[in-house]
């Protein structure tokens, strides 16, 4: 059966000032897949995520989200698309002055005509899914980092999105909590048939959750394929990244000019 493409990037180029951050990215994400974007710090992962969620526009190239060309959608179409996607930010991005329940219910209160009692039940259902039922009345400051991430996840799925984007969902968490988050991402994808796009450089996460993986390097897709294809890749840069070795073709520092030149300039 032909797989349905829900995200398609075609030769996406983005410059910030003189620096080319995305240098011709093309890839496709299939419905229901967990698609992992990996790559070194600063290679443009978050920037690319912001393009495929419509927050940034490319200088050139095309991005299709659920069949709509993001470089030409109207504001109304963009609003409709936003209701079909959920975002989980690196920092969880909870509102500290709101309770857990209010954080999760925010999208429903803002974007729907559902009555209070119904919204409260949706909140309980979503908190149950992330293992935080009964925490509605706590404030974010009373939660651990891992719990905050889970609240962020409950909020991201409040509107039953078709696609959920995660930026570094396990960064800064201990390996066990990271494993819990990974399992949650997988469970939600399979149970609710959500398409998940996950940016991470946690190699353990990559291979435990990914159906397909894209590795970015210097603004380009170095390799894209299934988890197994990436694991077996002959590309020395991919292997260097997987093994976390400091020596190899990937340069970890990307200065623009010579150090001594810079000092005496």
């Amino acid at each position: 059966m032909e797989k349905e493409v829900v995200i398609k990037a075609e030769n996406v180029i983005k410059k910030f000032g003189e620096r080319t951050i995305l240098n011709g990215i093309s890839l496709e994400v299939y419905r229901g897949d967990t698609f992992v974007i990996m790559g070194g710090s600063g290679c443009g992962k978050s920037t690319f995520l912001r393009h495929i969620t419509g927050a940034l526009k490319p200088d050139s190239g095309k991005i299709y989200l659920l069949g709509k060309d993001l470089t030409r959608v109207s504001d109304d179409e963009m609003d409709a698309l936003k209701k079909k996607i959920g975002m989980c930010f690196q920092s969880a991005a909870l509102f500290d002055s709101m309770t857990v329940g209010e954080n999760v219910s925010l999208p429903l209160r803002e974007h729907t005509k559902l009555e209070r009692g119904v919204i409260d039940i949706v909140v309980k259902m979503k908190l149950e899914l992330v293992g935080l039922r009964g925490f509605e009345d706590l404030m974010p400051s009373q939660l651990s980092g891992g719990m905050r991430k889970r609240v962020g996840l409950a909020r991201a799925i409040a509107m039953d999105p078709e696609i959920v984007f995660y930026d570094e969902p396990t960064a800064g968490l201990d390996p066990i909590v990271a494993g819990v988050i990974d399992k949650l991402i997988l469970d939600l994808s399979k149970k609710l048939s959500i398409t998940s796009i996950v940016v991470t450089h946690d190699m353990k996460s990559v291979f435990s959750i990914a159906d397909r993986v894209a590795m970015l390097y210097e603004g380009k897709v170095l390799e894209v394929g299934t988890s197994d294809e990436i694991k077996r890749s002959n590309n020395p840069s991919v292997q260097q990244f997987i093994s976390g070795s400091p020596d190899g073709p990937i340069r970890f520092f990307q200065q623009k000019d010579d150090y001594l030149e810079h000092l005496i300039r």
Partner: peptide, 14 residues
Amino acid sequence: VDSSGLATLVEVLK
């Protein structure tokens, strides 16, 4: 049926 639909049915039952 989405989550809000399920929640509506739960609220009706309640």
